[in-house]
Nucleic acid binder design. Structure first.
Length: 423
RNA sequence: GGAGAGGUGGCUGAGUGGUCGAAAGCGGCGGUCUCGAAAACCGUUGUGGGGGCAACUCCACCGUGGGUUCGAAUCCCACCUUCUCCGCCA
């Protein structure tokens, strides 16, 4: 959420930001009027409340002395209805302002390339050489199917489309990857491990920005104000919702493995086969709470932490700087990490690392008290996948496949697998 | 699921209708003392918002949302939540 005072004073900047994102600016129309109305209402209600408070005190004094106070009490009754009306209008207008603000996307950082869609993203770096195959590399669903470690047909029976059953060494590989990632992040990069609830309430979903705008993308539990998390970002960021953090405890680094659930509304026909786009998938997430002046430096470090996993696994990837049109709703800047998939002959997103600046912190009320200063400030929040586990498994199957259909396990993963090949 | 007791400032904890935004203690910060520190003593110390260049001033906030009243931390209703006992349960 943007600061209403910022919006009021910089309406042109906000409009340009939305335009750069390719979003409607209609929401901005009238927000200034509503905000002015809000402030007028505050002035008027406060004036009446002040009068009422003064009178009430006087009534108290008079009654203590046993004197009559009927006239004063009558005066308050004279404007009681008016005050009630004003308070209701104020309530109403405050809700309106908040609703509009909740629907306005974050302002992209100045360094974000202007562009329409993913074709305008800027490649930042490429790491690792795609392997040359002396045979036609297969898709991961073919590899996994033949090895008997992935079963999509039975998942349809159990649940439906966009689910998978992992079997035997397939299940073990998924679990090995989770442990491998968590171990690196906790032991080498001092992230604190979290295992959060995977059902969250609507306040949490609003805090990180999924609600109210992206209701269709998430699963809701019928009859409850509970939602299945689309990412661990939601419960982990909301750990500190409504809190004032100690400056000396910042930056805070958290990592969490969770299953993630996405409705994938509007992506019918895309990635219908295989593990790439599932309703349920595993992810190890990295979340940071930092002071504003360090957040961009922290974004670079966080992205590096995610990249480290692919380096250890020796899988080629590239990092792209998302353009304004591809940037997520709450993010000010995002780096995507894309792995090379020989089966598709292209790079596919495996991690998204973002700096939200104070956008989520303002929604969720996450502040800190800066050293030596009196006023509390909003923290900056960041998060990134470190990594999407299912897609990492895909990358391993496709990059490490052999002509005979077997798959070699990357060196770094062997202690977690207990075997060096799946065949 | 049933019965009961609670939710007050960073923490502990008083406050059951009228200068209560809230006693007291602890903690924090500043100072005196000290070579320095501790102790002791003195002072200070919640959040958000409106107006004002500022000094300052006003409003709101005692789990959340409603209600009663001239006036609510205090009374009423609903909800959330914590604890204890019983039941159930991986």
């Amino acid at each position: 959420m943007l600061d209403i005072r910022f919006v009021r004073d910089n309406i042109d900047k906000v409009a340009k930001a939305l335009k750069d994102r390719g979003e409607e600016t209609a929401a901005l129309k009238g927000i200034i009027d509503i905000e002015n109305k809000r402030r007028d209402l505050i002035a008027e209600t406060d004036k009446l409340r002040n009068r009422r408070n003064l009178i009430s005190k006087e009534v108290g004094r008079l009654k203590a002395r046993g004197e009559a106070a009927g006239d004063l009490m009558a005066e308050v009754l004279g404007f009681a209805d008016r005050l009630k009306e004003l308070e209701e209008s104020l309530h109403d207008v405050e809700d309106k302002v908040r609703t509009i603000l909740l629907g306005i996307a974050n302002i992209p950082h100045a360094s974000v390339p202007i562009g329409l869609d993913e074709d305008d993203n800027t490649e930042v770096r490429r790491v690792g050489e795609p392997r040359r195959f002396n045979f036609e590399p297969k898709n991961h669903w073919d590899i996994g199917g033949r090895l008997g470690i992935l079963d999509f047909d039975r998942a349809v029976k159990i649940t439906g489309a966009r689910f998978a059953v992992y079997i035997g060494l397939g299940a073990r590989l998924e679990r090995a990857l989770i442990n491998f990632m968590l171990d690196i992040h906790t032991r080498e990069n001092s992230y604190i491990e979290i295992f959060p609830p995977v059902l969250v309430n609507s306040d949490s979903m609003t805090g990180t920005g999924q609600l109210p705008k992206f209701r269709d993308d998430i699963f809701k539990i019928e009859g409850w104000d509970y939602f299945l998390i689309p990412t661990a970002e939601v419960p982990v960021t909301n750990i500190h919702r409504g809190e004032v953090l100690e400056a000396k405890n910042l930056p805070l680094y958290y990592t969490a493995y969770t299953p993630c659930f996405r409705a994938e509304a509007g992506s019918h026909g895309r990635d219908t086969r295989g593990l790439i786009r599932q309703h349920q998938f595993n992810k190890v997430e990295l979340v940071k709470f930092v002071t504003p002046e360090t957040s961009y430096e922290e974004l670079e470090k966080l992205t590096g932490n995610a990249e480290e996993i692919l380096k250890r696994l020796e899988i080629p990837y590239r990092v792209v700087d998302l353009c304004t049109g591809d940037l997520g709703f709450s993010a000010a800047k995002t780096y995507d990490i894309e792995v090379w998939l020989p089966g598709q002959q292209r790079y596919r997103e495996i991690s998204s690392c973002s700096n939200f600046e104070d956008y989520q912190a303002r929604r969720a009320g996450i502040r800190y008290r800066p050293e030596g200063r009196k006023k509390n400030e909003l923290v900056h929040t960041l998060n990134g996948s470190g990594l999407a586990v299912g897609r990492t498994l895909v990358a391993i199957l496709e990059n490490y496949q052999q002509e005979d259909g077997s798959v070699i396990i990357p060196e770094a993963l062997r202690p977690y697998m207990g075997v060096d090949r799946i065949s």
